[in-house]
Amino acid sequence: MLDFAELWSPIRLTLELATVTTLVLLVIGTPIAWWLARSQSRWKEAVAAVVALPLVLPPTVLGFYLLILLGPEGPGGWIAGLFGGRTLAFTFEGLVIGSVFYSMPFVVQPIRNAFEAFGERPLEVAATLRASPWDRFWSVALPLARPGLLTGAVLGFAHTVGEFGVILMIGGNIPGETRVLSIAVYDYVETLQWTKAHILAGGLLIFSFLVILTMMLLDRRLGRRLGQSTP
């Protein structure tokens, strides 16, 4: 008889990880995207390149650096020390930190695109109406960038669900804490428990298909909207 609690634990954990990661990324990714879209700084593209690095870097490289950074000699160990721990590796929080780096380009890029897409005009108009910069950002820029925010959130969530290499390297495979879906599938395949592997893998396949389909539909809607706003 299949133990559904055993299968549910990595699913719940993965959803939690992806949700927390996406929220964190929206909070820190939006200002970064805003700056990248608006700034005239000569360092702009260098910063953009750093944000985009995980697109190119093997997860093992990221995992290796994270293992050191999260460890007792790195900043992660220092932070863990504040809470009586000694490392952030093998913790849910450690996975969130890893996932934030790993999924950042997937969130920042669409938001930056959205900020760039509507151009200076709406903000200038708002400025002539005496909207403060803060007000312009909240009442004009953010609502206009909503499709980009949505795209970023969906992509960030999905990419975190699909994360494997980084978690394999910093997770420690602890049930309920760091044993996420991709790791569970890997384990089931390696131990020849293919029924369980099939259930989880099939579920991920359907999930991924739905995400990509959603993205394509969103993309078309976004495209139409931009088409309308371009003179």
Binding site: T87, A89, L168, G172, N173, I174
Partner: peptide, 20 residues
Amino acid sequence: LVQGNNASQAFQFAATGNAE
């Protein structure tokens, strides 16, 4: 307990000090 994928990873967890 934290699990490495194999003996080498268990060693690496300990050698980096992430596990004492």
